[in-house]
Every structure is written in structure tokens, then in C-alpha cells.
Design a protein around this nucleic acid. Structure first.
Lengths: 129, 129
DNA sequence: GTACGTGCAAATGATTTGCGTTAAG
DNA sequence: CTTAACGCAAATCATTTGCACGTAC
């Protein structure tokens, strides 16, 4: 159903994100991938990050209206610092299960994914204040 | 600690959002409030929506990088249509409780709020396809 | 009276688009 | 080959900012 064209650009983006837990922004993906593919354009990075997200090969996380990306991992949640926008992965099988149970009960929308974000101020930022 | 200056602009925005379950965008808040305060500027609407969110009088919901707003209500979650961006409120005490339990276990961040969003395609949009 | 809010217009920043060229299958 | 992807520059859209003036308290 979905034949994906593996261009060099897509391969490098996937490579960079594989096993990457830093939740990079488009700018950061662009900067990193450009080391390998000097001529890649930012528009291509945008297009491919969107494309790969839609295909389910990577995942988008939106923080303050800005897109960030991560590879596809086992189900987990995010704790986000309101101040520095750092994203910390957090795993809870209980919560995952509970949310999937809830998802089944929503009739108006056929749920295909769930996002759970915890917000607050991280230790580093609290220390600075 | 937080003495809020109740200007006409702020009062009208709060009035419009009170009991409003439609999750309006900034543009929609602006359009509505302008009927009462003809000379209000969009910048003021932006500034006040941000200000009132920070004060905890209203709540911001981000969909596809765009801000939407709702009055402060009992804890609930959102089901969002990927296609038309419609937001549907969904209540589950189980899930709320479970998420609050999880929040306590996150050490790196002192969690002060949790957002749970369910994504999928709504009934209307599925019908059109 | 004074600090804070407002209106306006211009600036910013992220993301998208149009189009001629290139490359994957 | 042929269609989808790329690179580039320009366009778009949401949101922010600088500043002179106005107003809540």
C-alpha cells in the first residue's frame, strides 16, 4: 500500500534520528544532515520530516508551536520544561494502558494515537531562578 | 501576589470564553470580541490570551502548531481530528487519576499540568472520504 | 500620578509553496 | 522512462515586538 522512495535525503534523516533521544528541532536535523549531504535544502528536510511522520517511521512532538522529532520507540510519554523546552521521556505501562482503554470509549473520533505531555519546570531551570 | 488589572479587553475575552466549548482560535476570539470592542487590536488579543493562560484563568490547547482556547473547566482530555482540527472534550476520572499518579513519579521536572490528547479522524471527516 | 495596557504597524520565525531540475525504481 | 523528490527563493501564516498614547487603580 505504501511504497516509500528511499532517497539519500530520507535515509540520512532516518539515520540521524535512529536511537536519537534528544528530540531535535527541524533546524537541528537540518544542521546534522547537512554534514553528510551538503546541498540538502531546508525545505526538503521539512517535507521529509512531515512525510516520514505520516508514514509512521518517526514521531513528531510539538512544543510551544515548534516541531521536534524522535524515532519510533516503544510507547512512552513526555515531560516538557516550560522554560527551556527540554523534553524528557517517561515510561509508564499503567498510564499507557489506561489511555488506550479510554481511547476505545471515544465514539466521535476513531483514535489512532495518544499524546500525553507533562509540563513543569525542570531541575536545571529551577536552580537558575 | 497576582493583582490582575481587569481592562475592558480582558473582561470581554473572559466573557466570550466563559462556558464556551468550541475551542476558538485567536482569530475567532478576535472576531467575536471585536463586536463589542470595535477598536481592539489583534496584538491585544494575543497578549491577553497569553496573559490569562499564564494566570490560570483560561487554558491553551495547541493543535498543529496553532493556539486554541477554552475556559478553565474540571479536568478533561481532548480528542482531536487530524483532518478538520475539531476538538472534542472527553472526561475520564480514571485516566486523570492515573496521569496524576504518574506525574508524581517524574523527578526531573516538577509537573504542574498534564495534557492528554487523542488523535484520529472524526466521524464527519470519515463520511466525506 | 504612575505603571501597566492598548493600538498600530512593522518585524520575526516557523513552515509551505511554485517551479524548473534531478534521480529513484 | 516517468513520477515523485529536490533545491532554491519567494510566499504565507501565526505570533511577537517597539513605541507613542491611554486608562485602571
Amino acid at each position: 500500500m505504501a511504497e516509500i522512495k528511499y532517497t539519500n535525503q530520507r535515509i540520512e534523516i532516518l539515520n540521524y534520528l535512529e536511537g536519537n533521544y534528544t528530540h531535535p528541532s527541524v533546524e537541528q536535523v537540518y544542521g546534522a544532515v547537512r554534514k553528510k549531504l551538503t546541498r540538502i535544502s531546508k525545505a526538503t528536510v521539512y517535507q521529509n520530516l512531515k512525510f516520514l511522520s505520516e508514514k509512521g517511521l518517526i514521531r513528531e512532538v510539538n512544543v510551544k508551536g515548534v516541531s521536534r522529532f524522535e524515532p519510533m520507540l516503544e510507547p512512552h510519554h513526555h515531560a516538557i520544561c516550560r522554560n527551556c523546552s527540554r523534553i524528557i521521556d517517561f515510561r509508564s505501562e499503567d498510564l499507557t494502558e489506561c489511555s488506550l482503554n479510554s481511547a476505545k470509549k471515544i465514539k466521535e473520533i476513531k483514535v489512532d494515537s495518544v499524546n500525553i505531555n507533562f509540563y513543569g519546570i525542570c531541575a536545571k531551570c529551577r536552580a537558575v531562578k
